[in-house]
Design a protein around this nucleic acid. Sequence first.
DNA 1: TTAAGTTGTTCGCGTTCTGCGAACCTACGC
DNA 2: GCGTAGGTTCGCAGAACGCGAACAACTTAA
Lengths: 115, 115
Amino acid sequence: MISKRLSELRKKKKWSLQYIADQLDIAKSTYAGYESGYRQPSLEAVRELAQLFGTSTDYLLGAVDDPEKRESKVIELTEADLSNLHLTIDGKLLTQEDINQMIAFIRVKRGMEAG
Amino acid sequence: MISKRLSELRKKKKWSLQYIADQLDIAKSTYAGYESGYRQPSLEAVRELAQLFGTSTDYLLGAVDDPEKRESKVIELTEADLSNLHLTIDGKLLTQEDINQMIAFIRVKRGMEAG
DNA sequence: TTAAGTTGTTCGCGTTCTGCGAACCTACGC
DNA sequence: GCGTAGGTTCGCAGAACGCGAACAACTTAA
């Protein structure tokens, strides 16, 4: 189940095995084992893979069949609670410091425009 | 993470180790290992445990902090479609240009850290 | 046309971890 | 006392992990 869904998601994103292995800091052959079904990822790896693919562990594990359902939503970044909200760029999670700096960046930019 | 959450959920439901072990058809000592953190359940066991406790695997694995929440919100900014996702800072909507600049900002920052 | 790199696959190997039953200690009720 | 149920921990055999290496197929660079 998880092997099939990992393979589908990766191909849809056009990512290589090596890219994902680098993101999780594991060997290419290790991740290849996940997709082939030869191995099972650790629970931590499952969580990280769900995050990387932008889906849920429930989907990866086959507990649900919907990859994701993204509703229209307004997200205020200065109040963002990172426990349940994960912003990524290039598939890599943004830290709270990243977000704080982005907020500062936008505020400066706006201040300059308002001049 | 999962050990803590399993323990909390089981106590809240006032279930015994043996009861859960019977439900999953595993040994009592096996499930006890899950709660003590001495062992990690298989992916299949995680799925069954989530179902038994009426929660999500995302919660058991610590991808979300709300037991009721079915899915972790992961938003990839480079793919952000503003038609159904609205980011704000200080209550003011971010433009696509704002987001593009934030992405560039983070990429530069990461490049410097990696460099 | 070579040479060099990338991608995906599959080995073997050493290590780690799983799952089990058994044993143990409480606490409770008879 | 006795028996039962709940919870913890142990040793063991077997399974599974993660890794690097090697390989063929393909693309890119020189």
